[in-house]
């Protein structure tokens, strides 16, 4: 007697409009997001290193070179796909985009 219970089927929780949001995510959008993640990760790592090595000249110049690159990638992304941050961190085109662009878990 196979007592392995049947795995409960998790109901398909994705609301229809989320499906639409998720579908039109282009590969260039994911590619740009990935680039932002890469640059941001490097900035975070250098930041953590600088917290304990504030006099490390090379680390500081590396950090200062990554920040503008990251900003450029974020601006380019937001120009095309809407704000990445809210509460005053990013502007939005008309109509208000924050509630319509895909959430991180939609990607």
């Amino acid at each position: 007697m196979d007592n392995k219970q049947e795995m409960p089927q998790i109901p398909e929780a994705v609301k229809p409009e989320d499906k639409v949001k998720a579908e039109n995510i282009t590969s260039s959008q994911t590619q740009m997001l990935l680039e932002i993640q890469r640059l941001e990760f490097t900035a975070i790592e250098l930041n953590l290193y600088l917290d304990t090595h504030p006099n490390d000249q090379k680390a500081l110049s590396l950090y200062n070179s990554v920040v503008p690159q990251l900003k450029k990638c974020i601006e380019a992304y937001e120009q095309r796909f809407g704000p990445l941050f809210h509460f005053g961190m990013s502007t939005s085109q008309y109509p208000w985009q924050w509630i319509n662009s895909p959430w991180p878990w939609d990607l």
Partner: peptide, 18 residues
């Protein structure tokens, strides 16, 4: 820790450290 070379952003993200 004394920083030497660091990984590229792509490699750093993939490996979990730069």
């Amino acid at each position: 820790q004394h920083m030497g070379n660091i990984f590229s952003p792509a490699e750093g993200l993939a490996r979990g450290t730069i």
